[in-house]
């Protein structure tokens, strides 16, 4: 007689400070699959999980920035390697859950100049097969891995001054970056925001896609085995409408990268940061999906501060 084997299904948890804690709130988040059944139960991250993640990120940041650019590049490349090993699981996580709506919901209350509004609108439908999305995300990590020991040469400069001085401008990490992944392209969108933030030595807190947060939950397992120091990447699976209001006013976040936000969400972030002058970059999902345009030095520039140094020159 053979016994029917009961499948052992995975418990998805948050990824904070290199560990996989459950949410402090004790809440779970059932994710409906394509067949209408429950595909997974995720942790529904709370404000306090966000607080913990930011504290972990703040603590981890100086060491990550102090790592050599070469080493950071190696680790980003390692992340790509480990993703390659998990590509089936990632593709399945993407395909098992219906993709988000084509265009994010808009509210008319947000008044923006016409030219800026058009830049937010989706011009291309970002549709990729799950396997192609995983490949694109891995390639994107490799792309940014290469930039780690090069971006400073391109963004930095030696400034001409009238006097016996050298005058250098060098880019440095801005600190803790919050990345808000779009509803569509739950994996590529996330990596496109996360990877450029890591390049100069920022630590990050990621809020996963809200229509399909499962790939983000899998990513934590990838990053935990990528030689990435604990706390440099923290991944929260939680509702944007709960977590987003706490990002802009939190003084320990230095920049916010987001994609595919609704106009009202974008407005909330921009108004929130007016008080503490942190940087907020809100991208169009389609622009991030597009192969060559989705990745550029400009994304790295969003996460750096420029430092200018005077140094006496020998006559």
């Amino acid at each position: 007689m053979t016994m029917t084997r009961i499948e052992v299904s995975k418990t998805y948890k948050l990824f904070i400070n290199g560990a996989f804690p459950r949410t402090e709130s004790g809440r779970s988040w059932p994710i409906t699959g394509k067949a209408g059944d429950t595909f997974a139960h995720l942790c529904l991250a709370s404000r306090k999980d966000l607080r913990d993640a930011i504290e972990a990120a703040r603590a981890a940041q100086p060491k990550w920035q102090a790592a050599t650019a070469y080493n950071r590049g190696q680790i980003l490349y390692r992340m790509a390697e480990m993703m390659e090993g998990k590509r089936d699981e990632l593709a399945q996580a993407i395909s098992a859950v219906p993709n988000g709506p084509l265009a994010p919901a808009r509210t008319k209350s947000a008044k923006r100049p016409a030219s800026r509004t058009s830049s937010l609108r989706l011009s291309v439908s970002p549709s990729l097969s799950p396997a192609a999305e995983v490949s694109a995300a891995i390639d994107r990590l490799v792309y940014y891995a290469g930039w780690c020991d090069k971006y400073a040469q391109v963004l930095g400069c030696h400034n001409p001054v009238a006097g016996p001085y050298y005058n250098f401008t060098v880019p440095e990490a801005t600190g803790v970056v919050a990345a808000v992944a779009p509803d569509q392209l739950p994996l590529l969108g996330l990596i496109s925001l996360l990877a450029p933030a890591l390049v100069p030595g920022n630590s990050t807190v990621v809020i996963a896609s809200n229509t399909n947060p499962v790939p983000a939950a899998v990513l934590g397992e990838v990053f935990a085995t990528s030689d990435l120091p604990a706390g440099v990447v923290n991944i929260l699976t939680g509702k944007r409408d709960e977590l987003l209001p706490h990002l802009a006013p939190h003084r320990d976040i230095d920049a916010i990268f987001a994609a595919g936000l609704s106009a009202s969400e974008a407005q909330m972030l921009r108004e929130g940061v007016a008080e503490n002058l942190k940087r907020v970059q809100i991208h169009d999902v389609a622009a991030i999906a597009a192969g060559e345009q989705g990745q550029s030095l400009e994304h790295i520039r969003g996460g750096v501060e420029f430092k200018t140094i005077w140094h006496p020159a020998l006559a």
Partner: peptide, 9 residues
């Protein structure tokens, strides 16, 4: 204030 502050504040 309901807002989190940074250590350097």
């Amino acid at each position: 204030t309901g807002k989190y502050v940074a250590g350097y504040d």
